[in-house]
Write a protein that binds this DNA or RNA. Structure first.
Length: 201
DNA sequence: GTTCTAGAAC
DNA sequence: GTTCTAGAAC
């Protein structure tokens, strides 16, 4: 027989030496979720936290307490939960700044485990927004509105997103989300978007 | 997901 | 020479 395979486990229960082990950082949200410093709302079904690296003036994550890893795990039984997450997310946006535009949605292929609904103001005014992937993940179809996810689950009983085509969206040229003007660099884009208003019309 | 940094782009 | 992007992280 071959020599014994080292199979230690880290604090998150992931196999450290196995090649198939989940990287340590992928479980980061589960820790953040239970960090009182980040929590802003809590009820029997969900927890809302401030994103640790906000990509706009206001950026929250609404997460179910129940373990639901991602969109693929969603079942028809979760429809009421998703609607509840949407409602509470909307309330949090309202409470933060009632005059500011917000979007509520999911990333097609999120990096981190545990389902999370982004509640993000549309100014994208934040030092944490640094690269093309950040920008495109919130301004292309990679960002799927919460209502669309709920509709898809109601219609098909599941939510399916193609990984390869979704990842291609992240490589698209930089474009202003308001006037659609193409920008050559992230710094130029960040300067440009300051010129628009993000108040509700 | 972020950090770091080599080297491309200017 | 400086700004900016993009890929590795054991």
């Amino acid at each position: 027989m071959t020599s014994k395979r080292k199979l230690e486990e880290n604090l998150d229960g992931n196999k450290v030496s196995s090649k198939k082990s989940v990287p340590f950082w992928k479980t980061g949200l589960l820790s953040s979720m239970h960090d009182p410093e980040l929590q802003v709302y809590k009820d029997d079904k969900l927890i809302i936290i401030k994103d640790k690296y906000p990509k706009a003036k206001y950026h929250f994550l609404v997460m179910p307490k129940e373990n639901i890893p991602n969109l693929k795990s969603l079942k028809k039984e979760n429809i009421d939960l998703l609607k509840h997450m949407h409602e509470k997310g909307k309330e949090m946006a309202e409470k933060s700044d009632a005059d500011l535009k917000f979007r509520l949605g999911y990333h097609a292929v999120p990096s981190m485990s545990q389902l999370h609904l982004h509640v993000i103001s549309q100014d994208f005014d934040s030092p944490c927004l640094k690269n093309k992937k950040h920008w495109n993940s919130f301004t292309t179809e990679y960002f799927v509105d919460s209502e669309e996810i709920i509709k898809e689950l109601e219609k098909n009983g599941k939510v399916v997103k193609d990984v390869a085509s979704s990842q291609e969206l992240l490589k698209k040229d930089l474009r202003c989300h308001v006037c659609k003007k193409e920008m050559k660099t992230i710094p130029a884009l960040k300067t440009h978007i300051k010129e628009h208003s993000y108040k509700k019309s």
